[in-house]
Deep mutational scan, measured.
Amino acid sequence: SEFQINEQVLASWSDSRFYPAKVTAVNKDGTYTVKFYDGVVQTVKHIHVKA
Rank of each mutant, 00 (worst) to 15 (best):
K22Y: 12
Y37A: 12
A51S: 13
E2L: 13
K45S: 14
A11I: 10
V26W: 05
V44T: 02
S1L: 11
R17S: 11
W13G: 11
H48Y: 13
V9C: 04
A21L: 02
E2I: 13
V49Y: 05
A25F: 08
Y37W: 14
V34W: 00
V23E: 01
K35L: 14
N6K: 05
K22Q: 13
G30A: 01
W13Y: 15
I5H: 04
I5N: 04
I47M: 09
G39P: 04
A21H: 03
S14G: 15
N6V: 03
K45W: 07
K35F: 07
S16F: 08
S1E: 10
V34Q: 01
K28R: 10
V34T: 00
G30Y: 05
V23A: 01
V26P: 00
N27K: 01
K28V: 10
A21G: 07
D38Q: 05
V9H: 04
F36M: 05
V41Y: 10
Y19I: 09
A25K: 09
N6Y: 08
F3L: 02
V34M: 00
V44R: 02
S1F: 13
V34S: 00
V26S: 04
V44S: 01
R17W: 09
I47Q: 12
I5M: 09
D38S: 12
V49Q: 06
T33D: 11
D29R: 00
I5V: 14
V40L: 12
V23R: 00
P20D: 06
F36T: 03
G39R: 04
D29Q: 01
A25G: 10
V23Y: 00
D38E: 06
V9N: 05
D15A: 01
K50L: 15
R17H: 14
Y19G: 04
S14V: 10
H48D: 13
Y32C: 04
T24Q: 09
V41R: 04
Y37H: 12
R17K: 14
Q42H: 13
K28Y: 08
K22C: 10
S14E: 12
G39W: 05
W13P: 07
L10H: 05
T33Y: 04
H48P: 02
